[in-house]
Design a protein around this nucleic acid. Structure first.
Lengths: 208, 208
DNA sequence: CGGTGAAGTTGACGGCCCGTCATGATCGCG
DNA sequence: CGCGATCATGACGGGCCGTCAACTTCACCG
């Protein structure tokens, strides 16, 4: 068939070769199916074949893109982390004080979490692996932001690694509970966490 | 062979039928092998056959005791939780104030964690499932203790569920880091967590 | 005691999933 | 065009899965 391409050989922006596009599409198709199937069958129960059956690809093709279902899951998780990191970064740059940063970062996290949850993200059904590159990057982002604030003298000289770990672990766990509650009060949960981290137990307002 | 049993038909304490003893021994052998193999091959990589090969039992026997390797792992985790719960309970009973309880509980947890780690517990290599009965019981233990203290007016009326989740998540994450550090400063890490929870960021001493 | 039935173990079996690979189709490029 | 590189395909051997019929061992009773 005569292509329009002859009249538009240049595709402004990104559209590169057909080959490359197919690759990206296949990878996306696998990730998409994985998201769906993980959510449907649960992480443990899904097999590589289940995932590939969710696409129109052959079983062998899977292994051109991923080594195992574990790797697919990590890719999904990394995807989330990669999308969240810039948000976190923006909070760090906008924040003047530790209080600002902690409050904003947790609020951003909870909003992100709620959005992912609403979108039916299957990530809650699998084993959260913290040792993937993007997850480490998120941790480092937080640790770095805290360390920077400490270095500028706007916070006490505490152990930044422990503090980051504490804030993340705390937010994670409370976030899980928040999502399970209906209605899901993002503001309330974020305020709870921020107050606890900044002023401790005695800084928490008397509520509920 | 003439049995001594005829002279000692009563076994003071526990020694019941041979059958029952064998069952317990088999179950223990499987759990033992699982602990070993999980630690050696990693959770994902180990198969039911790997576990059973670590015993002198036949493959079919495994399924008389557990449904899958997931169930074995949960049993191991539950075992840890079951051993830790009384410790936690003791702290709750001994504690006069929230400050006491939070400090003592975290310290106890970190000591438990360090001991398990030193004993080569394979639990760090698997997916921590919070929805097992014993794990829920541990959470409820903490939530209950906090709620009791609140009810007695010795703590502000905060959301006990969120607070328990926060304390647990925080301790878990910091505990992971603590174990990775050498030397492993249990006291220091526990103090960090307790101070953070009780007085917040500004209550933390300037250290490190 | 010896016999009997329940309880539990064994390992072989069919079925499924794994990861690989030879084959063939498709694309980019000279 | 035509050639080489790239990649999809699905069949294949191997391994693990969970089951099950046969067998062994134990507890109980007459």
């Amino acid at each position: 068939m005569s292509e329009v391409e002859t009249l538009a050989p240049f595709d402004p922006g990104e559209a590169v070769g057909k080959r490359e596009r197919a690759k990206a599409a296949n990878r996306a198709a696998i990730l998409d199916a994985a998201r769906r199937v993980f959510g449907q069958l649960g992480y443990e129960a899904t097999s590589v074949r289940d995932i590939i059956r969710g696409t129109d690809l052959a079983s062998g093709t899977f292994y051109n893109y991923f080594k195992s279902k574990e790797e697919v899951f990590e890719a999904l998780q990394d995807d989330g982390a990669r999308r969240f990191r810039p948000i976190l970064r923006a909070q760090a740059e906008a924040a003047e004080t530790v209080e600002d940063y902690v409050g904003a970062a947790i609020c951003a996290y909870f909003e992100f979490l709620a959005a992912e949850h609403a979108a039916g993200s299957s990530l809650s059904h699998g084993p959260t692996h913290d040792d993937t590159p993007e997850m480490r990057a998120v941790f480092e982002e937080v640790r770095g932001a805290i360390a920077a604030i400490i270095a500028s003298g706007r916070a006490p000289q505490i152990d930044a690694e422990y503090f980051a770990a504490a804030a993340i672990g705390l937010s994670r766990e409370v976030g899980q509970r928040m999502i399970r509650r209906t209605p899901c009060d993002i503001e309330g949960a974020a305020a709870f966490c921020a107050n606890l981290i900044l002023d401790g137990l005695n800084g928490l307002p008397n509520s509920k």
